[in-house]
């Protein structure tokens, strides 16, 4: 990989009191790749995610998206630049319909401006129809099209995971951050999610994934970064990482 990294985190650090949750962590995600972050519980993976998106601001360190610093931008601006995250426990907007959840993901909507709602009615309805079509196409591809008009809160756990990914896609991101996409999901659905990620990746979408499910990580990833106790342990291809002595030690204690 000779190209510039799409996402580049340099010595990112965050302490909670005396605990160094993330300690000088580096991370690079190359465009077009599926990059994973693994590590034992408490290794700081989710905290790292929060730091990358500035949901929590880092004490030290820098984060670059496509070469531009983003660690001082508020989270919504980072999302607008094309890096969109999902959450470990899928968070859907319960009392909005599935379709409205999807529409919310779209960027640059005229109708989201207070003043425009008054005098651009026609443009807004046109946009809403477009978004509906776009949303339905994505929902179709994840098998949720039939649920478009039900409340998102009525979905099962697995369906919520799918909706969350689908909703993130509505924002047409460059880089999608998935926090444990397979957690609490049945094996059949894990397979479906995997296929979906692979298909999207082939269309050019870059992924950064946190995951515990080793099979999923090893089969999907191009590059794996291992964290332990808030620090970088090793990085490499799945094959390299799988046989690494330090990784085995950190995971299995042997």
């Amino acid at each position: 990989m000779v190209s510039e990294p799409l996402l580049n985190a340099v010595k990112v650090t965050k302490s909670f009191g005396a605990l160094r949750a993330v300690d000088q962590v580096n991370l690079q995600v190359y465009p077009g790749s599926i990059t994973s972050v693994i590590g034992p519980n408490g290794a700081g993976k989710t905290t790292l995610f929060n730091l990358l998106c500035n949901f929590i601001s880092p004490d030290q360190g820098e984060v670059f998206l496509a070469g531009e610093p983003i660690h001082r931008l508020p989270p919504h601006r980072i999302a607008r630049r094309g890096m969109v995250r999902t959450f470990q426990v899928a968070r859907v907007l319960s009392r909005l319909t599935v379709l409205d959840n999807m529409r919310l993901g779209a960027q640059g909507q005229t109708g989201e401006n207070f003043w425009c709602t008054w005098y651009q009615g026609r443009a807004i309805s046109r946009q809403e129809r477009q978004l509906r079509d776009q949303a339905m196409a994505i929902l179709e591809s994840v098998g949720l099209a039939a649920m478009a008009d039900t409340y998102a809160g009525a979905l099962s756990g697995g369906q919520r995971k799918l909706l969350e990914i689908a909703r993130a896609l509505m924002s047409e991101p460059k880089l999608l951050l998935l926090d444990e996409p397979a957690a609490g999901v049945n094996p059949r659905l894990i397979e479906q999610i995997c296929e979906y990620i692979t298909a999207l990746n082939r269309q050019g979408l870059t992924f950064l994934i946190i995951e515990h499910n080793m099979d999923l990580i090893m089969s999907l990833s191009d590059q794996v970064w291992v964290l332990a106790e808030g620090r970088n342990l090793v990085e490499g291809t799945p094959a390299q990482v799988q046989t690494n002595h330090q990784v085995l030690e950190a995971y299995l204690g042997c």
Binding site: V84, T86, R91, L93, L104, Q107, Q109, A168
Partner: peptide, 26 residues
Amino acid sequence: RLVRSPWGRVLKAIREDEEVVKALGK
């Protein structure tokens, strides 16, 4: 008119879970 517009949709979404709305660039 407002609450039925996309503007209102953002408000309702904030009521449900503002972290999600933030993550979606609003």
